[in-house]
């Protein structure tokens, strides 16, 4: 697979390590009443879709940036690559 890095251009996926579903960016509020349940769901439960999947890749052998890659799990086709930093900021995270 070739991942089209927003800053570096097309890179071999073997340069990256894989973390998983991009929903991991949306960490629950640790002060919420039901924080324990929310963190259980956040840490352990996954949608695991067959089809389009947004996921976190880390450019370990490159510029060490985190990317959000939109990839089809049935065909491995990559349709969108974003910097995870930009995705997190668009969700209202300050850093």
């Amino acid at each position: 697979m070739i991942i089209n890095h927003p800053l570096l251009g097309p890179r071999d996926s073997a340069e990256f390590t894989y973390l998983g579903d991009a929903s991991l960016i949306e960490r629950p509020d640790w002060q919420a009443e039901d924080a324990a349940d929310q963190f259980h769901d956040y840490l352990y439960l996954r949608d695991n879709p067959a089809g389009e999947h947004r996921e976190l890749w880390f450019h370990e052998q490159g510029d060490r940036s985190w990317l959000v890659v939109t990839r089809n799990t049935l065909t491995h086709e990559i349709t969108k690559v974003e910097l995870a930093r930009d995705v997190a900021r668009s969700l209202g995270r300050s850093r």
């Binding site: 949608d47 695991n48 067959a50």
Partner: peptide
Amino acid sequence: GSSSRVMSLAGMRLPIES
């Protein structure tokens, strides 16, 4: 292999990735 897909029909999310 397809557990998440089938159990999602029952509205369940699983601690599983394929």
